[in-house]
Write a protein that binds this DNA or RNA. Structure first.
Lengths: 242, 242
DNA sequence: ATCCAGTTCTGAACCAAGTTCAGATAGCAA
DNA sequence: TTGCTATCTGAACTTGGTTCAGAACTGGAT
């Protein structure tokens, strides 16, 4: 009885197809102008078929965000597996997050929108669940690095749980991306490179918690060197050193 | 010719009235269910009149966000004027930000939504400008405290501009609020009090940049004491120590 | 007091786009 | 071939944001 399975596979493929088309439409005309009928049309399906996959437009947007999270997690996974000190890997998480957001500017906008209360609630419960499912590893991997740091003796949490520590890093990254993407907010303070800045702040935070070895946050050369090393050793194929 | 001015005042008052009604409707039924016609109806005006004030629904939402920012800035202003060391004031910014978000849970949701690319662009240019106008002081005040720290000799920026330093703090705060408000994301790591955690991370970051005097991030008693002191000396009337 | 020109208000009508669902079609087993 | 089911279709429906032609009001001039 392979018929049913083929069918399932076809349906799954079609879902990818819809999502891909939505992505293209968003790139071409912006998230603001995304229309369900256009997505269906571009895939040469009727809107009704589209609605068999996504219960609403918001549901589709959240599905896009989830796809992005999968990619995001995949990049974090490289960092996690990287053979380097816990502190360097923690730093690499920041680099990775910047890299990902920069290479995928739409993803940030999409997930920022999708995670707004309004949109989140308008998506289906199962879609929300699926989103959390694929997003959990992102936090978990960072927490894993924190735990490695503790195990190595490079970091003393002093009452903080690994998860709580993670939240600090995560907030710093997410907040930076948010500020960068909010048109106008940062314009008055002219930042040459917000992601470089994020790297510095991460070092600041890690230093503040005495994660060994200490790094001089003002040592631009060292920062660049580590950045380049990460690009080379972890993200070589992405040619990220632009 | 006072007629024209009275009229202007009346129009401005009506705008407040509309915004107030929108706020109530959002509290009652959520941002998701906000309807322009309901706002007009509740104010006993025709929808057309409502549209004389706001070019679109998104425009109204951004106006709400701007109102919130004014309040936010007013709280920051207290911190700025507080007679205390630069480091304590910097810390108080974090407390203030948490306090504000906690006292005003809708504001965060509203501005998170309003600042999404989709909504931001759907608002009128003048509204966007007005939003930035009232939001600028928020960053500027924090930057002012950073500059005070440098002036006092408590902080060496070592190549960072005051604005760049500010962005770190800001990102940490904004990111934390974001994580806290994103349902489900933080559930797996059980945080008892995310805002207390934010305070700790701020201390971590300030320590990391050697902002004097050094604070032991694990000293819960000291953290509580400072928190209480800030509530008492800066936000006494808000009865924030709940 | 009456009239007039300009301004503001009104809400029914308009319209776009998300969503639905009754019927058409295709796939499969008997 | 026939019937049964699952799936697809897209015109019709629905909702709610937006508009705009006409009503109502305002304040000053006659």
């Amino acid at each position: 009885m392979g018929t049913r399975e083929r069918r399932q596979r076809e349906v799954a493929e079609r879902e990818q197809f819809f999502l891909q088309a939505a992505r293209v439409l968003i790139r071409e005309e912006g998230l603001l102008n995304l229309q369900m009928s256009r997505v269906a049309e571009r895939c040469e399906y009727a809107v009704g078929t589209l609605y068999q996959h996504f219960t609403s437009k918001e549901d589709l947007v959240l599905a896009l965000a989830a796809e992005g999270s999968v990619e995001h997690a995949a990049l974090f996974d490289r960092v996690q597996r990287w053979q380097a000190s816990s502190r360097d890997r923690m730093f690499a998480i920041g680099v990775c997050s910047s890299l990902f957001v920069r290479r995928n500017p739409d993803h940030f906008r999409i997930s920022q929108y999708a995670l707004c209360d309004v949109v989140w609630r308008a998506a289906s419960a199962s879609r929300r669940e699926a989103f959390l499912e694929v997003s959990n590893p992102i936090g978990a991997m960072v927490t894993g690095i924190v735990e490695d740091g503790v195990r190595e003796g490079a970091l003393a949490l002093r009452g903080l749980s690994p998860g709580e520590f993670t939240v600090g890093l995560w907030a710093l990254c997410m907040g930076t991306h948010n500020l960068v993407h909010t048109e106008g907010i940062l314009d008055q303070m002219r930042l040459n490179d917000p992601y470089r800045l994020l790297c510095r702040h991460i070092n600041g935070l890690l230093n503040g918690y005495s994660w060994k070895p200490w790094v001089d946050p003002a040592d631009d050369a060292a920062l660049d060197a580590l950045f380049d090393r990460i690009c080379h050793e972890v993200f070589d194929d992405l040619r990220c050193a632009d």
